[in-house]
């Protein structure tokens, strides 16, 4: 077929039953010009080595399952064109995560961090149905909309040097999600979330490398969210010194 080329894939492998540590396998395959990195991995699994394990689902940059390190950079492999790479492509599991098998990483700690920021609308008293729906202006929506576009692909965690040095750090995506709810005009849970943000491993652990925002495949700005959460927490803390919170 026209445009076909050969590429060599150096893929990290790890079998917890057999391998002491991750190793690499090399596959040389013929690729189509319009393939993404994920297409090549699926081709290897389907036609060359069925033991290769990797996560994927939607193939359209929505589910966030197929995050991997490609040539040393965290990428969403279903969105990452093979034509952007040379003859050799190195594929490894996301950095900063324990590896379960081959390219599949352990997500449990990541999910716990998400739960910690209470990512849901909190209100002191539910509105009665007769009072109608919660209304929100376009300006109020703009305050948080970009932070709600996160697909939980974990690329930002893989790029973060603070997560690497301090594994308890809440991390970019979880803080961006908490900040998203803090900025939501319908929410009244700021005080609870800010306690989590100000705790050890919270927003002040971030030293602003800004790489999380660079690698985000959905153009969310998690590093901006973390810095904004820092500023709002300082204001919230300073305000609390002079204004009574009514016991909350």
């Amino acid at each position: 077929m026209e445009g076909e080329t050969k590429k060599t894939f150096v893929v990290t492998r790890f079998d917890p039953d057999q391998d002491e540590a991750p190793r690499t396998d090399t596959y040389e395959i013929t690729v189509q010009p319009d393939w993404k990195v994920l297409d090549a991995l699926n081709h290897i699994k389907d036609h060359v080595d069925p033991t290769l394990s990797h996560r994927w689902s939607c193939r359209m940059a929505v589910c966030g399952s197929c995050g991997m390190n490609v040539n040393g950079e965290p990428k969403l492999t279903c969105k990452d064109a093979l034509s952007d790479y040379g003859d050799t492509v190195e594929v490894a599991p996301l950095a900063n995560f324990p590896v379960i098998r081959d390219l599949v990483v352990e997500m449990e700690g990541f999910m716990e961090k998400f739960k910690a920021v209470k990512p849901w609308i909190m209100v002191a008293k539910e509105r009665a149905i007769e009072e109608g729906t919660y209304r929100q202006s376009p300006e109020e929506l703009d305050a948080f909309k970009q932070f709600s576009m996160c697909i939980n692909c974990m690329l930002c965690y893989s790029a973060c040097p603070v997560v690497s040095a301090e594994p308890d750090f809440l991390g970019p995506a979880a803080i961006a999600l908490g900040h998203r709810y803090n900025q939501d005009s319908r929410d009244e849970g700021n005080a609870e979330r800010n306690e989590v943000f100000r705790d050890d491993g919270g927003v002040f652990a971030c030293s602003f490398a800004n790489e999380c925002s660079e690698v985000c495949p959905k153009n969310v700005d998690p590093s901006g969210a973390v810095q904004q959460a820092k500023l709002l927490n300082v204001i919230d803390w300073a305000t609390g010194l002079v204004v009574s919170r009514g016991g909350k």
């Binding site: 917890p16 950079e73 950095a95 324990p98 893989s158 690497s164 594994p167």
Partner: peptide, 9 residues
Amino acid sequence: TADPRPPDK
């Protein structure tokens, strides 16, 4: 599991 490795490069 295999230990996490730090960010590449």
